[in-house]
């Protein structure tokens, strides 16, 4: 075997790419040729040194992962629901609807600290800062709902009064014909949403 061929076979051998028959031929040549033997030893050592580098891990900054995650384009909020629904195709449209409603209620409850007043006869109420007042002598026809605020009733409400995450003051002059509900916690808030939704659906 010529030395040139032997060198080529050495590389193949190190690449784990030399058939057994040729391995034996190479071995024979190495036994008879000191130059090639020396060269093979060097190549083998180079190979081993290079592989040993594999176990030396270069370490990136600790915050690299968070930087990567932060740099990703953010999926839109609605998409989360869509993907969630896609992943659970077994759910019926109705239950998905209910779930989406519940989920949006949770975010609503967590995030919205603004005063919200709902009712059918709102021009009768007086709003001062975060306080909603039904003045004495005035009459509200229909329900009144106040979120994240103080409610003071001196007059008359011909309907339900619901206070969510807030306080209710009922003066002695007050008259509320419907139910009075005070809701302070996320759970009951959800419950309120759900029952409300069902009754709304039922009345339609």
């Amino acid at each position: 075997m010529e030395c040139k061929l032997a060198v080529s076979l050495m590389h193949d051998y190190l690449d784990d790419d030399l058939p057994e028959l040729q391995q034996r031929e190479l071995k024979e040549h190495l036994l008879s040729c000191p130059d090639c033997r020396a060269k093979f030893k060097e190549l083998e050592q180079t190979d081993m040194l290079m592989f040993s580098l594999m176990h030396q891990n270069a370490v990136a900054s600790d915050d690299l992962v968070s930087r990567i995650m932060d740099s990703l384009p953010k999926p839109k909020k609605e998409r989360a629901f869509i993907t969630w629904i896609k992943r659970h195709p077994a759910l019926t449209a109705a239950s998905v609807f209910l779930l989406v409603m519940l989920m949006s209620s949770v975010t609503f409850w967590n995030q919205d600290q603004q005063l919200v007043v709902r009712g059918s006869d709102l021009d009768q109420v007086v709003i001062q800062g975060d306080t909603v007042i039904v003045p004495s002598g005035k009459t509200i026809t229909g329900n009144l709902t106040v979120e994240n605020g103080k409610t003071q009733v001196y007059g008359e409400v011909n309907g339900n009064v619901t206070v969510i995450d807030g306080t209710l003051y009922k003066a002695s002059t007050a008259h509320i014909s419907g139910q009075v509900k005070s809701i302070d916690q996320a759970v009951s808030w959800l419950w309120y949403k759900v029952t409300n939704m069902f009754s709304e659906v039922a009345y339609r």
């Binding site: 590389h11 190190l14 060269k39 060097e42 190549l43 050592q45 180079t46 190979d47 040194l49 290079m50």
Partner: peptide, 9 residues
């Protein structure tokens, strides 16, 4: 590999 062998040799 030849190149590295010569450098490291």
């Amino acid at each position: 590999r030849e190149f590295l062998r010569k450098k490291l040799g």
